[in-house]
Design a binder for these strands. Structure first.
Lengths: 206, 206
DNA sequence: GATGAACTTGGACGCTTGTCCAAGTCAAGG
DNA sequence: CCTTGACTTGGACAAGCGTCCAAGTTCATC
């Protein structure tokens, strides 16, 4: 079917994402992408100058998806106090992760791939920028909603949360022990709550 | 030069390790390995039936190196108390990591690679088994040396340490902010120390 | 010194990869 | 209707890949 080149690009990026999610970056060849999109081989090189350009677009798309998923993680139940709110947030985030192992694996693949290709270093950086910002928002929101305050800088806390979450996720991809992962996250959530001061009844101020 | 087939295998594994460390698994082709070892192409297939067999041997070698590095991390200064001991241990481990970024990256690459190839799943598992055991030894040793006791199961603590360390390392590979990494690890070490009871003067008992 | 097993050599093979292009098809504007 | 620019097609190309093998070399053993 005939398409405008920008629409074609979008379609091919989705196709590349599908292939990469299923079989990894290494298996994401121009031909596989064309086949997935049900398109002639030449079309791909009409829409993208290089394979590198396609891969870069794919990487950017993965970061975008990461941002979407992070944003979705911000919706959690009405929390009574900070510890409970953190627990709920952690559970929500983890549910998303546990439901999408292939996407998580692809994220790590993109990271290592980017580290091997200097021109994609920016991609790896933006992965962390996006995630860091999302966690900061979540921490701030949790504190605000419960009227508590963090006793340490939120960016530092967010970086630690992110590191822990990354490590737990990667290990879970290997051992698939969801219960262990949840327990580790809960433990960390309790630690985190220790870096906050409870509300002092000034909830009605705003 | 003529060699026994097992020596040849060892040599080729080292060559493969060198190539993979420098340019990643994707760039680790049979030809590159042969060239690195300064050996004819056919030699590789005389020593290994498959490329898969070579890669499996490489992966095992990386795990082995991980074990060695972990063991080396157990040697740290005489600690006065547990928090200080943990700080010293963390610093020692981090020094090793920061000195070998390419090796760290390769470790993550091996993990994701193994996750994409079901027959290598065992490799990914043993990466964690080795690291987990090393961290457990380190935690036990630190407590023993300072006469303190952990108030939570060591395996749980070790798993959390490992997750955090993994996450911090991966992020450092991307942003190369060593100061931030150290600060995060210190923060976690303090949290860890909170899961211990100080010595009660029964040091002379043993 | 002859024999046979162990190891090396260099090249060939079929396949997949990214890239490229001439010719064809389509849709819109004059 | 015809022209023009945009998009598609199918195949070709060289390079790199893993694999294989027949012939050559080396070395220990008898």
């Amino acid at each position: 079917m005939r398409m405008a080149v920008e629409d074609r690009r979008a379609q091919l990026i989705e196709a590349a994402l599908a292939v990469a999610t299923q079989d990894g970056i290494a298996a994401t060849t121009v031909r596989r992408v064309a086949e997935q999109a049900d398109v002639a081989l030449g079309v791909v090189h009409y829409a993208f100058a290089d394979k590198d350009e396609l891969v870069a677009a794919l990487a950017a798309r993965v970061v975008e998806e990461l941002a979407d998923a992070s944003a979705a993680g911000l919706a959690f139940d009405p929390p009574p106090d900070l510890p409970a709110a953190l627990g709920a947030a952690v559970a929500a985030v983890w549910d998303t992760i546990e439901a999408t192992p292939a996407e998580q694996l692809l994220t790590y693949e993109i990271t290592t791939f980017a580290l091997r290709h200097p021109d994609l270093r920016g991609v790896a950086r933006s992965q962390y920028e996006v995630s860091q910002a999302a966690v900061e928002r979540l921490l701030t929101l949790a504190a605000d909603a419960t009227g508590a305050r963090w006793t340490r800088p939120v960016p530092e806390l967010a970086a630690e949360v992110l590191a822990f979450l990354d490590g737990v996720t990667l290990r879970w991809l290997v051992d698939r022990d969801g219960a262990a992962a949840r327990s580790r996250l809960d433990s960390f959530a309790r630690y985190l709550a220790a870096s906050s001061r409870a509300a002092r009844r000034r909830k009605a101020r705003a």
